[in-house]
């Protein structure tokens, strides 16, 4: 589904990624872990198109997408969330999630100006779909008319997930979905991510520091350190790997 092949990326003298290669298995959750500055977010930016890799390719559904712009990649079915929530703060929850449906709608300028007819049908259909598939699913119906700014952090994270789901993506990149959350919120989010994978069959790629969650829900884990891929495998394999323990996990006390 999504494959990264020998990706290199550098900013001036800093080598952010040096030869990262892995394939996310369709319909499964793949975790990307590593210490701060290991290149996890750079990897996400290379996959979603904000950075062009210096060397190597990104494949999506068998096609090389390394040189496409972010909006083209989004159209193909790659959705993501950001580590620091990147919602549209001046808009309501509902409008944010509706924006996720952008690429699936066809309304052009002329039908938008007249609204009644095709544009209206399409908008109402989008509204129904979002209400029934996203807002219901994420249990955020009570806040749908609220502006983003007044929502607590955990709910904002959930709305951002909702916006990505409204894209009906094939691959979902989640950048630290539970960072800064308490136990309960983390458990909720983990449940939503598992549901996303099970109910919608979406392939998930997950960057996260919460090791309990990563080990629990991922079927495959890639470990980065200083831009290099130092291990990859099942949670059991990775957590037993001496290199990973030294670089990141630390020895059990």
């Amino acid at each position: 589904m999504l494959e990264v092949r020998d990706v290199h990326l550098s900013f001036g003298g800093i080598k952010a990624l040096q030869g990262v290669s892995f394939a996310a298995k369709p319909g499964e959750i793949t975790g990307v872990i590593g210490p701060n500055g290991a290149g996890k977010t750079s990897l996400f930016n290379a996959i979603s198109g904000f950075y062009q890799p210096d060397r190597g390719q990104v494949f999506f559904g068998g096609n090389d997408i390394s040189h496409l712009s972010p909006d083209r990649r989004a159209e193909m079915g790659i959705a993501r969330t950001f580590q620091n929530i990147a919602l549209f703060r001046g808009m309501t929850v509902l409008d944010n999630i509706k924006l996720g449906g952008h690429t699936r709608l066809r309304t052009g300028l002329w039908s938008a100006l007249s609204y009644f007819g095709p544009a209206r049908r399409e908008e109402l259909e989008l509204r129904r779909e979002i209400e029934e598939k996203v807002i219901d699913f994420l249990e955020i119906d009570h806040i749908r008319k609220y502006p983003i700014t007044i929502l607590p952090y955990g709910l904002q994270k959930r709305v951002e997930l909702g916006r990505a789901l409204a894209m009906q993506p094939k691959v979902l990149l989640l950048d630290e979905p539970v960072a800064g959350m308490n136990r309960e919120e983390t458990a909720d989010m983990a449940r939503f991510i598992l549901d996303v994978q099970e109910q919608f069959g979406i392939t998930v790629l997950l960057v996260e520091h919460d090791m309990h969650m990563v080990m629990d829900i991922c079927s495959h884990i890639v470990v980065l350190n200083f831009g290099q891929q130092i291990a990859s495998g099942t949670p059991a394999e990775v957590s037993g790997d001496p290199g990973v323990i030294e670089a990141y996990l630390g020895a059990a006390a």
Binding site: D71, F88, G90, M91
Partner: peptide
């Protein structure tokens, strides 16, 4: 409006 609020976020949604 999405472009006004956060342009890179708009791009990621295919705008």
């Amino acid at each position: 409006i999405a472009i006004r609020e956060r342009d890179y976020s708009a791009e990621i949604l295919g705008i």
